[in-house]
Design a binder for these strands. Structure first.
Lengths: 338, 338
DNA sequence: TTGTATGCGTTATCAA
DNA sequence: TTGATAACGCATACAA
């Protein structure tokens, strides 16, 4: 650090004013070829890198947006974020990512930090967050879009119907004849996606004439082994389930793995479903029947919405990305007599 | 944006000078309880957030470091980076992460961007990168540490012996009696970790009196299905391997999956090993025998080294994190007569 | 086309 | 303990 060259150094070396150097860098058209060449030579002779802070201060813009995701630990958000980032890059906008560890308090902090660091808008996952986070967003007039869920807020969202998708999956499970159904869910507190998925399953039960209170739900954090332990707990209940609907694929894969360790065949002895359709879902045995979410489309859509918002436009309030169930083998009919 | 309140607004509201507000925020001890309270009230009445750029400009420091990792797509770097980040946070330092997509040109850009955004130091993965990246680092006097590999550069590294670990794994494979060994490797160009692992396997072959040129190596990018296709290609060779050493766990899991699709039993018909010991390695059937890398220790160590470097200290040049092989079942003796 | 000069929001030096 | 004020590195309106 410290020995960083500045605009003035470049100007001196090229024998021009700082204004000209600035123009060379930002509006090359407004400068003669001759001088531009001279300036550019000086620029990379010195290894000059503009000071971002100074730039932001003087121009009052950063071409930067932020995103706070719950975790980088698994692949759940990777694909969507990648698409988001690529769409931003195409518009010359940089993405700053941070993760909250599924902690609402941390998420609120992260939002502040991102805005402080110049984020002109932020991408948020789901709708459940501290009131103070929303208040900060409003007070600082920071545009934001919500993804991975639908929202009825004034700010736009580009997501999918978590409840509807989970309900559809549960309906499929019921249609196969399952009556003893359990769920391994993510922690639903301050996680609307997880909560909606549970709700969706309950709605399907009600619709099927079953008592939604009979649904055993194990809430765990999203990890293979946590899912495995939840699976064990479910299988020792008085009435073990014949099908387990998992809140996402990480839980689903963990459950399949636990089933095999216990000597159970999937789906003959126990059916298991997931949600998200991450890569690994297709690479376990049997393949995980799950809800496919078009993450790329969602990420790109979210980027478009946020960019529009930043430009002062008013994008569509709600973009609903369609999901679909993909059958892979982990879901089958219950054993007769089970 | 735009309606952002500044120090002056807070000062006006609290009836003090901007200098006092600044002190309240940065050196609360140097101010009376009374005035501090008044100021703080104004601060959150206005939802004031300091302008990072202005701060960086005036104080000439950012408390920020950057990291460029090859990908966020899989879990390979997640754990180590998490530990890195936590150690930094404990020191009040923010981490900026970006990914290069295993592209050297992009990596060089990302490094520039991070430095421009105020990174006072950067974490880099492995040693293979464009000369201009190293030159930029030197010219800008940006401290950096290299992780995930050992390095003989002047700048410190906190990593592990990729070649040695791969060699040890190959020795184990040889000791079990395998003679027809193949590898599914990551792309080795501009990836020293991948290259070293191949080299390590070759070294073991030589040491075992085998011709290293007989080693079939399939280079693919790190994805389940790419590994699956590579597996197919290997199994249709004139002499199919009895053991496949994979460059990492993603490839290993993909290979196991492909083996099963092909109706092969692991390890009875084909042995498969991985590298990294990410979560999923323990959750496939059979469990993936792999090289365990203490990512947390590495991440924390890298943070310590980088922080020291930034403080102007001179940390240990090379920290070698010990790896170990963890047996899970995907590696066994070759079939007799195979 | 190029140069001059001012201001961006904050910290830090120096006085009071 | 507090307040005035000069940097910090850059963009930009205005002048030349």
């Amino acid at each position: 650090m410290s020995l960083r060259s500045k605009l003035e150094d470049v100007a001196k070396m090229a024998g021009v004013s700082t204004a000209t150097v600035s123009r060379c860098l930002n509006e090359p058209g407004k400068v003669t070829n001759k001088t531009r060449e001279r300036v550019m030579n000086a620029v990379d002779a010195l290894g000059y890198t503009p000071h971002f802070g100074a730039k932001a201060l003087a121009s009052r813009k950063t071409r930067t947006v932020g995103a706070v995701i719950p975790t980088m630990d698994n692949a759940i958000f990777a694909r969507g974020l990648q698409a988001f980032q690529e769409a931003l890059a195409a518009a010359g906008v940089t993405l700053l990512v941070s993760s909250s560890g599924y902690d609402a308090e941390q998420e609120a902090d992260q939002i502040r930090v991102l805005v402080m660091r110049g984020a002109e808008g932020v991408l948020l996952i789901g709708t459940a967050r501290l009131a103070k986070a929303y208040e900060f967003l409003a007070r600082s007039k920071t545009p934001y879009v919500i993804a991975w869920a639908l929202s009825d807020r004034e700010s736009p969202c580009v997501g999918f119907d978590n409840m509807g998708a989970a309900k559809a999956m549960a309906e499929r499970v019921l249609a196969l004849g399952h009556r003893d159904i359990a769920m391994i869910s993510g922690i639903t507190a301050m996680n609307d996606r997880a909560a909606s998925r549970v709700e969706g399953v309950r709605a399907a039960l009600v619709q099927g004439g079953l008592d939604p209170d009979r649904l055993s739900v194990e809430e765990v954090h999203y990890a293979f082994d946590a899912a495995g332990k939840a699976f064990e707990r479910l299988m020792v209940r008085e009435v073990p389930p014949t099908a387990i609907i998992c809140g996402n694929d990480v839980l689903g894969v963990g459950a399949i793995s636990a089933a095999k360790r216990r000597g159970l065949r999937v789906p003959e002895d126990i059916s298991i479903t997931g949600f998200d359709d991450i890569d690994i879902a297709a690479h376990v045995e049997p393949g995980l029947t799950t809800v496919h979410v078009p993450h790329e489309r969602m990420g790109a859509g979210a980027a478009a919405a946020l960019l529009a918002l930043i430009e002062g436009e008013t994008p569509q309030a709600t973009v609903c990305i369609e999901t679909r169930i993909v059958e892979r083998g982990s879901l089958g009919p219950p054993r007769v007599g089970a």
